[in-house]
Design a protein around this nucleic acid. Structure first.
Lengths: 181, 181
DNA sequence: AAGCACATGTAAATAGTTACATGATTCC
DNA sequence: GGAATCATGTAACTATTTACATGTGCTT
């Protein structure tokens, strides 16, 4: 047995996956988790740095100190051979069902509490947000080739998910609009 | 000032929305959050009961003790007038962006670590899960009329979200399949 | 009488955020 | 020299899960 046969924190594997995809600093990893990772696993930087230290202590990643091109020095992490092995085992496992927290859907559940105008305005704003996310993922998709299999598939997920959200907003608007006030 | 001008826990509003939608017991609310709430806000029962007590203490919901039709006695909660007012204010507010935790997308990011067969098998299982979720939401949709505006719109979200997930799984399969091993 | 679904609760542990803190470098 | 971005970190707090706990009533 190696220290503990128990389960490991998903966040560490999430980060390992991000670093495997491309060597990154903690800062870059945080940014990545906040933009690309928005539809899979978004966290704050305060969770990232301690996890990086754990991963390094376990020998799953290694760091290299580099002078920042535009900014101060940072540590760039790469996945070690041992990390790659652990990651491979993890990737082959089954995932728990996605966990989603989306208050907006619950607001829509209660839309009969609002005057029609208010509801329509709210959903229009939500639509605008997801439309701009969609455009972001479309732009990213256009910049990728089939060579970059993983990033391309993840980006496709972003595109499809945002398209579905925008389509739902449109349905909500339409149904609300043609309703008796 | 009423006790605290600070922000309130989202879970309480989520539950208030669920009870407003239909008076429910803690047990029923938990079930609802686990099935319908899967694409908006899923929690365990251990979070539900304490929050119910808080909501009742604040006078936002009231309980009625009823003998269970098939099972022991339970408390059915309804939204009070005061609760309805608070809920209305909340519904009119803007929502934070959805927070999603989905390990599967990150596994796909690393699919080049797996033999093609393994990856295809995994994604087929994931597809099957979302397909069955889709069928659940479609059945639910068929049972609703436009009278039940909120539940219908929430169910539509389930349908669209699961369709998008299934479509993504198909894309992943296709791209993996026609790749050099 | 055993097993299952109903029904509710608490305590300990974990995960994650918010707020606090610091400092470098670049651009205006 | 001030603002913005880069870059990293800690501490306190909050939210949520897991595990423990208990008991009812129906079905087989």
């Amino acid at each position: 047995m190696e220290t503990k046969p128990g389960k490991e924190k998903p966040l560490k594997y999430v980060m390992l996956a991000g670093i495997y995809n491309e060597p990154r600093s903690g800062y870059e990893l945080t940014k990545w988790l906040q933009v690309v990772g928005q539809h899979c696993w978004s966290v704050e930087h305060s969770s990232v740095y301690p996890a990086l230290r754990e991963l390094e202590k376990e020998g799953l990643i290694s760091s290299e100190r580099l002078p920042g091109t535009r900014g101060p020095e940072r540590s760039i992490y790469s996945v070690t051979d041992s990390g790659r092995e652990k990651l491979t085992v993890w990737v082959a496992n089954a995932s728990p069902r996605p966990a989603i927290k989306d208050e907006q859907i619950l607001r829509v559940l209660c839309f009969d509490l609002l005057p029609r105008e208010t509801a329509l305005r709210q959903i229009a704003e939500v639509r605008a947000h997801h439309q701009s996310q969609l455009e972001f993922f479309l732009a990213r998709q256009a910049a990728l080739t089939e060579k970059q299999l993983g990033p391309l598939l993840v980006t496709r997920r972003g595109v499809l998910a945002e398209q579905a959200y925008v389509a739902w907003c449109d349905e909500v608007s339409e149904i609300i609009a043609r309703r008796p006030a």
